[in-house]
Design a protein around this nucleic acid. Structure first.
Length: 349
DNA sequence: CCCTATGATTGTTA
DNA sequence: TAACAATCATAGGG
């Protein structure tokens, strides 16, 4: 009567579709809602701006699933319910038709039994044939229902991939945090929550953003030079103004108040002062030099200051200015990257 | 329409 | 399990 877990799983395995395909619950196909990843990752789909704040709030308050796709969820659910309804009603029709046809054939055979001997075996055989035929039809129905569910699902997933760029202000907040913590751009969970609130996005979106940012920065530091300068200047100005700018808050959550630096995820690069911008004096432990400030310095020096062995996008010599060098991890040492086959992964520096 | 930027997803790694 | 790396898919500018 129902599409079993097995049938869906089989189809899923065959098609190697998404791992989060709906499993048939007690009632039939796909009692689950999509969007819950097996790995526990939260769905960070960028919804409409209006609901993003609510999403962030819910995420900040510890909500397990970001609700910014609740509308799509209900849409998905209703369509799924529709499919299930059609499936069940069709199945019932076939069942009924099967029974009717069976009794009809039985009646015919009984009628025939008046004129010719009809063995019980023959009747059984006929019933068997009819049932096989109908179950084949039911299998087809089941299959096409599975397909319909999968199409619905893939459409839903496609929709999830639709993204909106973050607002300018949000990007600004994130960039400010990133460049003012360039030596250790790993915001703590609390910092992420704070950033999420400020930006009106979810914590996982903040995590995504930092993940993307770190990797893209690392891959092409040169490209981000200008941006780093901009935010260095911004932060410098805001610091000079007493830590408050008009449009956006320059003080990262972790250092708001300026009393101390949060214990970052890395932990090994605690920086002095409020934020590691210009107040983070260089020389204390060697890695508190704000890289963005270094960027500025480097920028004013012009290209080529560090020698020819450094590639086009190369900015710092790790020997000269020892910022945390988090971007050197993973075989992307901008100095060593000149060595052929230095790492398994290519480094665009 | 092409190209780059960017947010999200997925698989891997430490 | 967070971070990384690669990749996907769309946004947005020319």
């Amino acid at each position: 009567m129902t599409i079993t877990d097995q049938s869906l799983d089989e189809a899923q395995a065959k098609r190697k579709l998404h791992p989060e395909l709906p499993r048939g619950g007690a009632g039939g196909p796909a009692a689950d809602a999509p969007g819950q990843h097996a790995s526990g990752r939260r769905c960070g789909w960028t919804g409409e701006r209006g609901s993003a704040a609510a999403a962030a709030a819910a995420a900040a308050s510890g909500g397990g699933v970001s609700p910014d796709n609740s509308i799509e969820h209900s849409d998905y659910r209703s369509k799924l319910a529709q499919i299930r309804h059609i499936y069940h009603s069709e199945l019932e029709k076939y069942e009924q038709a099967c029974n009717e046809f069976t009794t009809h054939v039985m009646n015919l055979l009984r009628e025939q039994s008046r004129t010719r001997p009809v063995a019980p075996k023959e009747m059984e055989r006929m019933v068997g044939i009819i049932h096989r035929k109908f179950s084949a039809i039911q299998m087809q129905l089941k299959q096409s229902t599975c397909e319909a569910v999968m199409i619905l699902r893939s459409r839903f997933l496609d929709a999830r991939r639709k993204r909106r760029n973050f607002s300018k202000q949000a990007t600004e907040v994130l960039n400010e945090y990133f460049y003012s913590h360039l030596s250790n751009p790993y915001p703590s969970e609390e910092a992420k929550e704070e950033l999420a609130k400020k930006c009106g996005i979810t914590v996982s979106q903040v995590s995504n953003w930092f993940g993307n940012k770190r990797i893209r920065y690392k891959k092409n530091i040169g490209k981000f030079q200008e941006e780093a300068n901009i935010y260095a200047v911004k932060t410098a100005v805001s610091v000079a103004q007493g830590g408050h700018s008009r449009t956006s808050s320059p003080t990262p959550p972790s250092s708001a108040g300026g009393a101390h630096c949060h214990a970052g995820s890395g932990g090994s690069f605690n920086l002095s002062g409020s934020g590691d911008m210009f107040l983070g004096m260089p020389g204390l432990n060697g890695d508190s030099y704000p890289a963005s400030q270094v960027e500025s310095l480097r920028h004013s020096m012009g290209p080529g200051s560090y020698g020819d062995n450094i590639g086009g996008g190369q900015i710092y010599s790790p020997r000269d200015i020892r910022v945390s060098q988090w971007w050197l991890a993973g075989g992307c040492d901008p100095v060593l990257s000149d060595i052929p086959n230095g790492g398994t992964r290519k480094c665009s520096l």
